[in-house]
Design a protein around this nucleic acid. Structure first.
Length: 426
RNA sequence: CGGAGCGUAGCGCAGUCUGGUAGCGCACCACGCUGGGGGUGUGGGGGUCGUGGGUUCAAAUCCCGCCGCUCCGACCA
């Protein structure tokens, strides 16, 4: 993509409203712009990141034997009367009326919709287990939205719902999601710790929050130091039940089994939440299947969320410096930023055009800064938007076919022949 | 919802107390000089001063209502 044809409204000055790094950087990098309190438009650069994250989540959900569906943003109040949550949910739920004066709502989650689907179509234990997921915009009318997309009112969320014949099956589903989450966050370069959680409005027995570690995290988490030793494949129910990890909302100093001297604390950002809630929805919705003996059995359910739009902010909280964002390659909006330092120099521009064509040809996502601006401004913008690799070509190097390759994460810069630089980023 | 602020050009702000030609920096446009980390000179464009009412010869400025946004708290993917 040529920057002269793109839309990247970067800001030199810090917007007054942004309090934390990720919010500030998302605004400055031209990723999002606020429409009203807690509601954002995603601009081209931000949207690319959102889609990258979405794709990773999707791949790991598919791998965990889940089927993607797309449920609506607007739901009828009727479904929520069935579960009893229409009354319970409170003001967080945005309630609206259609032209016929029917009560509707902008969905904050979709247990009701999916359970209704299940109840209408699935009748036999032979069709179990089933897992459905949905990547859709949700709305929760937060009392006080803040921190940009980390705590917006409208947010993009992946929610998965599992249906099993019995508790044993439900535990397998729960474990499958635990595994999927560990892989998902790891692919984004994040360290995520599953901590025990209250299950809140969704209700239920078994529940964990996935907290990613970041100094600016919203909540404080307390965990057994043995956690740091766990391998990915050791993150299982047994170990989670054995080892203590809790967020400040449920941490109880008096009853904590870990010696306070060794107990570790860190700041965390909640990016995922998994629950098992048994038959809470299956019974009221009549989500029953015939068992092997012909009995009608209410299915065991669980739900599993990942805050996709929140992750954009969370990843920036984990990866940034004074100059800007430092995207992990897996979610970066482009892999390479190509800087033409002197557009007016024909040799320099010819070399840049050549590199650009070769990168495109090799399928490398590249943002080509072909604007007629000073070098300083271009470097500053490139550091700000945080692409993993910067390739700078000036008239000096161009004369010898050389480019400067910079690694945004390490800050390391090296002079290379064009062909070598291309090899390095391809 | 309690407490505290703010609303003046795209962004950051001054001007409001003490009413009298609407300003500054950045960004933007034109031209020149420059050219490897937000360069520089000259010229230029852009404003219902959030909104409705009131007071006054005169309101960004004073008074009243409304709207919006932000921060602290309780609440949360």
């Amino acid at each position: 993509m040529r920057l002269t044809q793109y839309f990247l409204p970067t800001l030199k000055e810090t917007p007054a409203d942004a309090q934390i790094a990720s919010h500030r950087l998302m605004l400055r990098a031209g990723m999002v712009t606020q429409v009203t309190s807690g509601i954002y438009s995603w601009l081209p650069l931000g949207l690319r990141v959102l889609q990258k994250i979405q794709q990773i989540v999707r791949e790991e959900q598919d791998r965990a034997q889940s089927l993607e569906v797309l449920m609506p943003t607007i739901q009828p109040a009727e479904l929520w009367h069935t579960s009893g949550r229409y009354e319970d949910y409170g003001k967080e739920m945005l309630r609206i009326k259609d032209r016929h004066d029917r009560e509707m709502l902008y969905g904050p989650t979709a247990e009701e919709v999916i359970t209704d689907i299940f109840a209408r179509f699935i009748k036999s234990y032979k069709d179990l287990p089933k897992r459905f997921y949905n990547i859709q915009w949700k709305f929760r009318d937060e009392i006080r939205p803040r921190f940009g997309v980390m705590r917006g009112r409208e947010f993009l969320m992946k929610d998965n719902y599992s249906f099993d014949l019995d508790m044993e099956g439900a535990k397998k589903s729960y474990q499958a999601m635990l595994d999927a989450y560990v892989k998902t966050f790891k692919r984004m370069g994040l360290t995520a710790i599953p901590v025990r959680a209250e299950s809140g409005a969704i209700g239920g027995a078994m529940s964990h929050e996935f907290q990613i570690l970041a100094e600016t995290g919203e909540s404080e988490i307390f965990y057994d130091p043995a956690y740091d030793e766990l391998k990915d494949d050791e993150i299982n129910l047994e170990n989670l039940q054995r080892l203590y990890a809790a967020s400040d909302e449920i941490h109880d100093e008096a009853n904590c089994p870990v010696d306070p001297k060794t107990l570790k604390t860190a700041r965390g950002i909640e990016v995922g939440h998994i629950f098992n809630f048994g038959t809470k929805y299956s019974i009221p919705f009549g989500a029953l299947v015939s068992g092997p003996d012909g009995d009608q059995i209410p299915v065991q359910m669980g739900s599993y969320g990942i805050g996709i739009s929140r992750l954009v902010g969370a990843i920036i909280e984990a990866f940034h410096d004074e100059s800007g964002i430092k995207w992990p390659e897996s979610v970066a909006p482009f892999k390479v930023g190509l800087i033409n330092i002197r557009v007016s120099d024909s040799a320099c521009t010819a070399l840049c055009d050549d590199i650009y064509a070769q990168l495109l040809n090799a399928g490398v996502e590249v943002l080509y800064d072909d604007r007629d601006k000073g070098a300083g401004a271009k470097f500053a913008d490139m550091d700000l938007i945080g692409l993993p690799w910067q390739m700078a070509v000036g008239p000096r190097g161009a004369a010898q076919g050389q480019v400067e390759l910079k690694n945004r994460h390490t800050g390391e810069k090296i002079e290379l022949q064009m062909a070598d630089a291309l090899k390095k980023v391809a």
